[in-house]
Simulated scan of single mutants.
Amino acid sequence: MSYSFLRQHLSEYGSFSDEASEVVQAHFTERQYRRREIMIRQGERVTTCYFIVSGLVKLVYTDDSGKDHIVSFAREGWWESDFAAFFGHTGASMSLITLEPTKALTLSNTSYRTLCHEVPGFGQFALEKAHRGFIGAQQRILSLLTTSAKERYQRLIQNDPQLLQRVSKTQLAAYLGVSRETLSRLQL
Score class of each variant (00 low, 15 high):
residue 183 L to H: 10
residue 133 G to S: 09
residue 129 K to M: 12
residue 145 L to V: 01
residue 152 R to Q: 05
residue 184 S to E: 05
residue 21 S to M: 14
residue 13 Y to V: 09
residue 180 R to C: 10
residue 136 G to Q: 11
residue 174 A to Y: 14
residue 151 E to I: 03
residue 23 V to E: 13
residue 148 S to T: 01
residue 144 L to F: 08
residue 182 T to D: 11
residue 78 W to I: 15
residue 130 A to Q: 14
residue 55 G to S: 07
residue 178 V to C: 05
residue 61 Y to V: 03
residue 188 L to E: 13
residue 19 E to N: 09
residue 71 V to N: 13
residue 127 L to C: 03
residue 118 E to M: 07
residue 24 V to I: 15
residue 78 W to Q: 13
residue 149 A to S: 05
residue 57 V to T: 01
residue 135 I to F: 05
residue 143 S to F: 06
residue 160 D to S: 15
residue 155 R to L: 12
residue 39 M to C: 12
residue 183 L to C: 02
residue 38 I to M: 10
residue 16 F to C: 12
residue 46 V to L: 07
residue 104 A to R: 00
residue 49 C to F: 11
residue 115 L to C: 01
residue 12 E to F: 13
residue 92 A to K: 04
residue 62 T to N: 03
residue 5 F to Q: 04
residue 21 S to C: 07
residue 18 D to S: 02
residue 9 H to F: 10
residue 80 E to F: 10
residue 20 A to L: 03
residue 90 T to A: 14
residue 73 F to P: 01
residue 61 Y to G: 12
residue 105 L to Y: 00
residue 134 F to M: 04
residue 142 L to C: 03
residue 73 F to Y: 06
residue 1 M to C: 09
residue 14 G to R: 10
residue 61 Y to E: 08
residue 171 Q to D: 14
residue 50 Y to D: 13
residue 24 V to N: 06
